[in-house]
Design a binder for these strands. Sequence first.
DNA 1: GACGATATGTCAACAACACTGACTTATTTT
DNA 2: AAAATAAGTCAGTGTTGTTGACATATCGTC
Lengths: 163, 163
Amino acid sequence: MTDLKTGANPLFLREEELRQAIEMLYFAYRDFTSEADAMLEKYGFGRAHHRVIYFVGRHPMISVSDLLDILKITKQSLSRVLGQLVRDGFIVQHRGTADRRQRLLELTAKGVEIERQLTEAQRQRIANAYREAGGDAVQGFRAVLLGIMDAPERGRFARRDQP
Amino acid sequence: MTDLKTGANPLFLREEELRQAIEMLYFAYRDFTSEADAMLEKYGFGRAHHRVIYFVGRHPMISVSDLLDILKITKQSLSRVLGQLVRDGFIVQHRGTADRRQRLLELTAKGVEIERQLTEAQRQRIANAYREAGGDAVQGFRAVLLGIMDAPERGRFARRDQP
DNA sequence: GACGATATGTCAACAACACTGACTTATTTT
DNA sequence: AAAATAAGTCAGTGTTGTTGACATATCGTC
């Protein structure tokens, strides 16, 4: 009744299915970042720099504390990386007008360019995977990833048809 | 003609779609590992220890070089982590019988137990996400992740109906 | 049986990136 | 005026990866 030979035991299949998902996430995420990681080396930067560049590009004039909320790292960790990026001219800081304590972050032209280069390989991977898998698969992909992440994070990906 | 206001410009939508995918991967992967990361601290271990424990559990009697092939790290990086796990009694090494140069790795009972605990939260996340998203979504999720990872890695997830 | 290749391990130095803890400055809010 | 907030800084620590060099045991082949 346990059906070990045929692999039809539902519990066994389920365990295998879950482990495959764990491993697919690991391999896909690692490969996903590999080209950008290689490119970053040439600038003497690491993955943390890419994250900062990416999210500043995505949210121009973001405050330091809002960026910390997204990245969920300490300000000491951020400051090392951000300091380099400002010194090297990839990011500029603007004093806030409403609240002058804030340092609002923005990519320079140089910053926009490196962001484009770094993210291009990742965009390509996603675009190819989406195209090959098809629209229904994309919806499934998004649904499962949303289910995996912590609930508060899901708000960042609200559906367009909801005001 | 560019339709900026309505958001109906297909290029614009596509860019937004790709960026959402990039971010979903980042947030989902980070949250996915958070419980295990917290548990590992209590043992004085890091995420690297979890990976070794996981893959040794998944491939009992795996050789060191095969494990290195999966993890794609240097043997020096592995040796630090593996050495700790062996010293602390989570993994045992068996001399290979066919090739006595090999050190085949296996979890101890203690190792099996910590593996179960560490992976449990991840299994739960996947199981919940799979259940909520449904079977078709799971297929889509797998298809897209397979498309994102490097082609050679895809072989690890062969379909069951192919011999 | 000698010799080159392979599997594994080890020592040392280094870099990236996260952390904690303590403290400062400027500005806003109460 | 006092408390809270935004941001920055200094110092120390730990994990995890890297490169390079070298050692030992075993296997496979000529």
